[in-house]
């Protein structure tokens, strides 16, 4: 049984077919990458998987159960988390507060209105430990998010998803826009993800993809162009023609 699968997933915008009949299957614990040139439909596909968009046709399955009709928040509750290509953070909250909020939400506590959030010590401690694992200093944890350097914010983006303890994690270009000096921390965080988490990595950076992924799906014009292990993808002439545009990688 696949951890995450799609069957004939399709999405039209007016007359434009952004995602066309995409069928994917990610095995439990997979390290799967989704690549493709700009406008290939990668972000639309992520939005279809996370529930931010509804498909025009097709199905999405999480752990074998159909989730096509579920709204975003219900998918998260079933273990599907995502990060965003463009940071979606809480500028006024501290990292500790934001990750704490995510932990509280995972526990299903954000409907509670009596006991102060600060009194939920276990959740707060968990948030701190998670951030410390991503090498946030104590000062950084308590600074307003908007004051942090971009690389740290990028890490926080991942931390918010990790706090949900997902079974399947969609990473949408985690290293996008991170200056070279700060990108190592992000790459380490991605590499350190436990095997119990199934990962779909959407990425532009080929180094990261070929280092990380054990399977690659190439998307072009909304449809699956090729799928296979990295070596096969690197050799695939069709992929090289539309995407790599040069000699085989590595």
């Amino acid at each position: 049984m696949s951890a995450l699968a799609t069957e004939g997933l399709t999405r039209d915008f007016g007359g434009f077919r952004a995602v066309a009949d995409v069928s994917l299957a990610l095995a439990e614990g997979a390290r799967h990458a989704l690549i493709g040139p700009n406008g290939a439909g990668k972000t639309t596909l992520v939005n279809l998987l996370s529930g931010a968009l509804r498909p025009s046709a097709g199905r999405v399955l999480l752990g074998g159960a159909e989730i096509t009709a579920l709204p975003q928040h219900a998918r998260v509750k079933r273990g599907l988390a995502r990060t965003f290509q463009v940071n979606q953070l809480f500028p006024d909250l501290t990292p500790e507060g934001a990750v704490g909020l995510a932990v509280l939400e995972r526990q299903g506590l954000t409907g509670r209105w009596w006991r102060p959030a600060a009194a939920h010590a276990a959740e707060r401690e968990e948030a701190r430990a998670l951030l410390a694992g991503l090498r946030f200093s104590a000062a950084e944890m308590r600074a307003p998010t908007r004051s942090l350097p971009y690389g740290r914010q990028r890490l926080l983006e991942i931390a918010l998803a990790l706090a949900l303890r997902p079974r399947v994690l969609l990473l949408d270009e985690p290293a996008a826009g991170v200056p070279p000096g700060e990108s190592r921390a992000v790459l380490e965080a991605v590499a350190a993800l436990p095997r119990s988490v199934t990962v779909l990595l959407i990425e532009h950076d080929m180094d990261l993809v070929f280092r990380f992924a054990e399977r690659i799906t190439v998307l072009a014009q909304g449809a699956v162009l090729a799928e296979g292990p990295p070596a096969a993808i690197a050799r695939d002439p069709a992929v090289r023609a539309v995407y790599l545009g040069g000699p085989a990688h590595g």
Binding site: G51, H73, V76, A81, F90, L93, E105
Partner: peptide, 14 residues
Amino acid sequence: RGIRGNARRMPALG
């Protein structure tokens, strides 16, 4: 406060 700060992120937190 999270919803006011970023209404797009909140559903992604569940």
